[in-house]
Amino acid sequence: MKIKRRMIEEKAGFGLLRAAAFLIIGVILFLLFDIFSKGSGVLSWEFVSQKPAKGMTAGGIWPAIVGTFWVSLITVLFAVPVGMAAAVYLNEYARQGRLVRIVRLAIRNLSGVPSIVYGLFGFGFFVLSMNLGLSVLSAGLTLGLLTLPWTITASEEALKTVPRSYREGALALGATPWQTIRTNVLPYAVPGMLTGAILGLARAAGETAPILFTGVAFFWPMLPAFPKVLFSQFMALPYHLFIMSTQHHEIAKVRPLAYGTAAVLIALIVLMNFIAVFIRYRFRKKFKRV
């Protein structure tokens, strides 16, 4: 009798633990199923390659995809070099003292700042003070700031995986600290850094609040060519989804379009995550041999 009770307790306990772990899979499966089943009706080549038509009740989302692309590009070009540089400084050069602790504290706090606050800051700083206007540039830089804490942290983690012996070995052969970092640390850390950058970007690409005040437009079907595009307003997938589901004058009618937009956005982000996982996997394999 006693044994039976113990077994039941055991099973119930592990059952709960297992349920907690599987809950997360359930959530993502439900989410994907819901979005793709409701959006699949509109998903087609035309949907992703054409402009919205008839007051956005028909047509596709091509301008929003292009807009998201340009903004993401600016985000990457800003956040990756700055994040890498900051990480190299913090991890390789800086004397680990009070100043570095303060910088790290600032980074941690920045990652907790609500994205709408980044949007306000971007509006005040990039749009107004720096006079960049409502533009791809302002929005991209704002999202760049948002991803910076992730980029820095991921880059530092990547630098920490490079064995100390690589650094010592190079220094003992008469390499300068910068030569050591350039030839014997960065090459082995860059894949890890890129992984972090892509994950940060995947987050940024789905953000609405930061671009709300800095450049995204309700309807902006024609983006000018480079370089004019940098100073143009634009459409973006997350914002397009937002207006299609809350701001449109015929919400019920465009609901499938909203789901279709969500599906495309999620597909893009999942793709980015896969690329990040792939890079990390290859990186790990390379290091296993060390």
């Binding site: 690589y166 052969l173 008469g174 041999r289």
Partner: peptide
Amino acid sequence: RRRVSMVFQKSNPFPKSIFDNVAYGLRI
């Protein structure tokens, strides 16, 4: 450090080719 070089307890070849390892000090 170029005049007084060092070999460590645990061998620490760089994850490069044999040639690039030996040429490292000269290249830098």
